[in-house]
């Protein structure tokens, strides 16, 4: 009885135990059917190896060099630096924009502060509004020698002691006719 092809495959790979191998060998030597099966296994293996192989030795050398480059690079990399010790690079336009923004914010803060101070410094004139304050500030800031116009303040309230609203009922009779 012929052995299973699975056994023949293992026999072909020389993977059978010695006792089993001897039995299979004796059978195959005298069995044309199993000899054909063995030949087929040989042909499959030969066809797999039909392709010419590239130069693996060169590949071995090249790959080794690449691996060593990576390994050396990893081992010689700079020590870890803390966040506050790191150096940052910033482009000139970005730096200029940052400085300009800082100056603008600073100027705005100074102006706002100055305006606030001027307003609170004259508590005796509660009528002074923002326009007056900024006008005074502009005078101080720009030109002390410029011609100043004193605009008289209107602080007289004209009271005619008469009702401003003349009610319609005053023009009507008691029966409701004009």
């Amino acid at each position: 009885m012929c052995p299973d092809v699975e056994i023949l495959s293992s026999y072909y790979d020389d993977e059978l135990e010695d006792s089993q191998k001897q039995l299979v060998k004796t059978h195959v030597d005298s069995c044309p059917h199993c000899q054909k099966k063995m030949a087929e296994l040989g042909l499959i293996s030969a066809s797999i190896h039909a392709e010419e192989e590239p130069d693996f030795q060169m590949a071995q050398m090249n790959t080794w060099n690449k691996i060593m480059d990576i390994v050396d690079q990893k081992e010689h990399k700079l020590p870890k630096v803390n966040f506050w010790q790191r150096r940052f690079q910033i482009s000139f336009p970005a730096a200029a924009a940052l400085v300009a923004a800082f100056v603008a914010v600073l100027s705005f803060s100074v102006i706002t502060f100055y305006m606030g101070k001027h307003t609170t410094s004259s508590p005796s004139s509660p009528e002074l509004n923002m326009t007056d304050a900024s006008g005074a500030m502009m005078d101080d800031m720009f030109d002390d020698n410029a011609i100043k116009f004193d605009i008289p303040a209107i602080n007289t309230i004209i009271n005619a002691e008469e009702p401003l609203l003349i009610r319609e009922v005053d023009f009507m009779n008691r029966d409701g006719k004009h």
Partner: peptide, 24 residues
């Protein structure tokens, strides 16, 4: 492993009929 190698060869045997493939 033994079963898988056998099955691989069996499948290749069906895909590569003997006589149709040139073997150097």
């Amino acid at each position: 492993v033994k079963i898988r190698i056998f099955r691989a060869r069996e499948a290749l045997g069906k895909l590569l009929p003997v006589g149709e493939v040139y073997v150097p």
